[in-house]
Design a protein around this nucleic acid. Sequence first.
RNA 1: GGCGCGGUAGCCAAGUGGAAAGGCAUCUGCCUGCAAAGCAGACAACCUCGGUUCGAUUCCGAGCCGCGCCUCCA
Length: 492
Amino acid sequence: MPLRLYNTLTRQLEEFKPLGGNTVRMYGCGPTVYDYAHIGNYRTFLFQDVLRRYLKYSGYELRHVVNVTDVDDNTIRNSQAAGIALRNYTDKYIDAFQVDRELLSLEQPEFLVRATDHIPEMVKLIQTLVDRGYAYASEGSVYYKVAAFPPYGQLSHTDFSGALAGARVDSDKYDKENARDFVLWKAAKDGEPFWEAPFGRGRPGWHIECSAMSMKYLGETFDIHSGGSDLIFPHHENEIAQSEAATGKLFVKVWMHSEHLIVNGEKMSKSLGNFYTLRDLIHKGFKPSAIRYLLTSVPHRKPLNFTFDGLHQAQQSIDRLRNFKFRLMKEKFPEGETPALQNIAREAAQKFAEALDDNLNTAGALGAIFDMVRDGNTAMDHGDFHAGDGAMFLDTLQRFDRIFAVLGDDDHAKLVKHGFIKQQESGADANAAAGSDAGRSLSDQEIEKLIAERAAARRAGNYARSDEIRANLLKAGVILEDTKAGVRWKRK
RNA sequence: GGCGCGGUAGCCAAGUGGAAAGGCAUCUGCCUGCAAAGCAGACAACCUCGGUUCGAUUCCGAGCCGCGCCUCCA
């Protein structure tokens, strides 16, 4: 089955085929770096990540651009409030964005670009629009003349032929010919950062950034452009107007948008106290992989209601998958193979891909994998699973993880690496430390040592001692399981 | 007002014109030194009203409810 994607522009599910050869050229709207990105932002970025991973899975090469908006009213306001140069201020949040991306296992796009590195391209594009009669200067700023571009409204499917189309626009604020016109270049205000341009000192408007940068790296027409649903209008509508007016060519073939994340049924907002960044959740003790799972498990065209209960459920689900992988790799099975079983694993991989082919139906894809996990576990428990069957199951599991990326069990290592967790100093009495609730985490070696000690106690029939060690480890956030394949431990 | 998205068991959620995936939670049993994990089983759902149809949760119409965008916003 071919990959089919829902295109906001045509409002249809369309079979996907790259415009040029085997390489998919795609652009994703990234964050404005005036603060830490919130989990709603990451819902969109994770959707884009699933998209890029599945395109690769499907055999395509990628040329993927993600932008960072590092100049706008918010970044300027906050940097000035902090008394820090704009560039230095945004650097901090770009670094944080990169850390978050690593925590959430977001793949690096081929190009991560920032707006202020592309001012000349934007100026040139604005000049082209002025030259072609699509833009006009006014009071040192430059505006896009929406009336000059009749297809305006095609993406948001809105008819703007009527006067103001119900928009509440403060038309006194700007010297615009029409309230719908939007700014391409903002005249510099006192004390604000500015760049030189033929139309005067100033800075680019938000929309022109994405047109200039996407076309620079991907060409005048490219395959996929994506972002959150709130960007459909006006941001993406304006990008189309700018780009197509400047080139006379189709700008983007497929537009994809993810629905918003809401929290406990309400819009996430600071005033409601339900506004979460990734680090807020990590500080509450949730694992990045659980957050990734929860945010990717709901197909992107459906609103996602974020709850802590949902995060807990996500964690449990991941554990089920990891447990199965553990059995697969560690348990000893009788020699031989069972073709019927291997077919189950093979068909699961097929169903997995078929679900994702259907506009990235992640929930359906998960169902296929869990079906296989149950069948595999059942066979193992009944003694029907043979040594020769493992590879096929592992292969399907790995296919799954190329998209979902949650089986790695590297949350702890990542959190230590980025300073969210302090590692227990080595050399300390691990058991005492484990029982002391010191707020530090034990190293893998210390945990292994205690497990060995417990194993010895169990062999000696000293269950009081072995249970004490298990309880201490639990207190330190380590869960032990005695399986047929040996002791398995995991961090809570 | 305009334009969208959604309403499936306690929670998350797939899917379908003809016996309604999957995950989490709960209960029982097996397994385990005890747990955990796993297995077996149990419990439990298609917002309402019309229409089309032999048959609708699925298609059409109306309505109700939730969320979003239309102004910076993933």
